[in-house]
């Protein structure tokens, strides 16, 4: 199941684990990513909590936890190759995985709703 947040994160839920990354729209808006700071595994996050930082040549942006739970893994490969976030945002460019605590927030969108949301910006 693939969902999207208003903060331009995608969430793929498989077996109680949510993998989170930023959308193609987000990476395109950021431009060339040069640095990423990822959450430590074990950290407990709530919905909307800033838990990662992504920096492009021009600017720094927070990445928020789109779901609540415990971080179980961060994508360490991004630290040495942050450009992966630009090249494959929906795949190899994933940021972190969260073991879900409770239901998904209601305001997460499906792909069509997110496309309409981006269109409306």
């Amino acid at each position: 199941m693939l969902k999207f947040s208003k903060d331009h994160e995608w969430v793929r839920v498989e077996g109680g684990i949510a993998t989170v990354g930023i959308t193609d729209h987000a990476q395109n808006a950021l431009g060339d990513v040069v640095f990423v700071d990822l959450p430590e595994p074990g950290r407990v996050v709530s919905v909307g909590e800033a838990c990662s930082v992504v920096e492009s040549v021009k600017a720094a942006s927070d990445v928020y936890a789109p779901v609540a739970g415990r971080v179980v893994e961060s994508n360490a490969a991004l630290v040495d190759n942050p450009a992966t976030i630009n090249q494959d945002p929906a795949g190899e460019g994933w940021f972190f995985k969260i073991e879900l605590d409770g239901a998904l927030p209601d305001d997460l969108m499906d792909a069509d709703a997110y496309a309409r949301f981006v269109e409306s910006l």
């Binding site: 040069v34 640095f35 700071d37 920096e55 600017a59 720094a60 630290v79 942050p82």
Partner: peptide
């Protein structure tokens, strides 16, 4: 000023 590592300081 050169930050060590990769993280920019703005």
């Amino acid at each position: 000023i050169r930050p060590e590592g990769r993280q920019p300081a703005r």
